[in-house]
Design a protein around this nucleic acid. Structure first.
Lengths: 247, 247
DNA sequence: ATTCATTGTGTCGTATTGACACAAACATAA
DNA sequence: TTATGTTTGTGTCAATACGACACAATGAAT
């Protein structure tokens, strides 16, 4: 794609794709070619395409997933986020073709989206044309990132934590059926704090968005926990109405 | 400003400026020249300027106010929000100069900001160069708006309502000193529902962000209510920490 | 059969919330 | 000066939600 005339000038989209695995929150990242730096999956916006749609496209190209929860959370529009030296470097290293140099030298703003995906559903994370790896990295120990991508991830995580106050979460981050301890582990990871097992169950059940199945997760070395699934109607209603009225 | 080369292409900023007066939530709107349509105060972004800063500039130019609460809430990026016929119309009516036509014909995305301002502080709302009036209009009975400005206002209001769950509000929307019933009226207006007088007071005081003065609002036909002011330190702490932990 | 970590259920005291009643204050009218 | 009407300040009470616990049930491993 050395053709940039169809792209919205100075505009990019970056996706913070969260996955949950082994009680750790992970982020899907791309390793830049020729550099020891990582970047968020992102891309540009076709003039004839909705910005939201391009975010969906990016998510799909990197993960193969469709119909995923994707939420626009912020526009990063500071002048300081642009870096000419960085573009020069990329051209010199051959990561960017010379005829694309002018495009990359524009002042860019980027729209941040975050997605929640079920870790196991992503079969093969796929690098794009400026990266050579696409991997899940733990949120807590991220390597050097390009530009302001650290800040973007941080803001995504903060937004997610705040949304947890008044919205349910779990669909897309957990498998179809899951146990109460698994759901709790998700919340504890997102919130970065421990919760009381019994109070968590009580409160979560009070939300009335779970359906108890008659199955249990076998194979663990201990008491087999009950499997639950989300009542999708009530779940989405809860997102609309909000869990807390507050007032 | 027929000079567009310094502007970020295809990017605009729109501000939903809320004011509170006579128990009504109002929005500062501009009446388009030569048309029976209204628009949000907005503008373009200089290449060398932060997007947030341009929003601040717009707010200042229309209201004369500085240091105001201003919150970026959404990027509107659908292709459908652009309208060529509308641009043609503006050029024909002489609202837009012909040499600006090309600029306006771009596909535009817009960043939405909302601001909360104390109604009385805005001395003279000032129109810009494509409008001939600048007035406060009640949120509940808005006239015909250009493009998707209705949607932008709606989204701003919704965001505001949601933020009310976990953040205090009032500074910038109320005078320095205010009564409890006035604060309650603000909440009721924002939330579009009535609240119990006594429970409201109890909960609000429990937030511990108010300072009771020893003055009362005189002149009303009834018992003179106590004047309160915000404890700005605690107020801003509450914004940081959030009023509800949720979990 | 015993062990042991984990899960399901329940209790108890406290804090928060929703629904009320009542007295005090203040301009206006008499 | 007093009475009136409405609004404001304060308090009560029951229902609910919440934080901190104890205990029994389960199931693979020993």
């Amino acid at each position: 794609m050395s053709e940039t005339t169809n792209l919205h000038p100075g505009l990019s989209v970056d996706c913070v794709i969260f996955g949950f695995h082994e009680n750790e929150l992970k982020v899907l990242m791309l390793k830049m070619k020729q550099m020891d730096k990582w970047a968020l999956p992102g891309g540009f916006v076709n003039i004839k395409e909705d910005v939201d749609k391009e975010a969906i496209n990016i998510l799909q190209r990197r993960t193969g997933l469709k119909d995923i929860f994707l939420h626009q959370f912020h526009l990063f529009g500071n002048v300081s986020r642009n870096n000419q030296a960085y573009v020069d470097k990329l051209v010199k290293k051959g990561v960017i073709e010379p005829d694309m140099k002018e495009w990359f030298q524009q002042r860019f703003i980027t729209v941040g989206y975050y997605a929640l995906v079920e870790f196991a559903n992503v079969q093969e994370p796929t690098p794009d044309n400026i990266s050579d790896k696409c991997e899940w990295l733990p949120l807590t120990e991220l390597p050097d990132l390009i530009l302001d991508h650290s800040e973007i991830i941080h803001k995504a995580h903060q937004t997610l934590k705040t949304q947890l106050i008044y919205q349910p979460i779990g669909i897309n981050l957990l498998p179809e059926k899951f146990t109460m301890p698994e759901l709790q582990a998700l919340y504890e990871t997102l919130l970065e704090k421990e919760l009381d097992r019994r109070n968590f169950r009580r409160k979560m059940l009070a939300y009335d968005i779970l359906i108890q199945t008659d199955e249990r997760r076998k194979g663990g070395a201990h008491k087999a926990p009950i499997l639950y699934k989300f009542d999708k109607d009530k779940y989405h209603q809860a997102i609309e109405k909000g869990l807390k009225s507050g007032w």
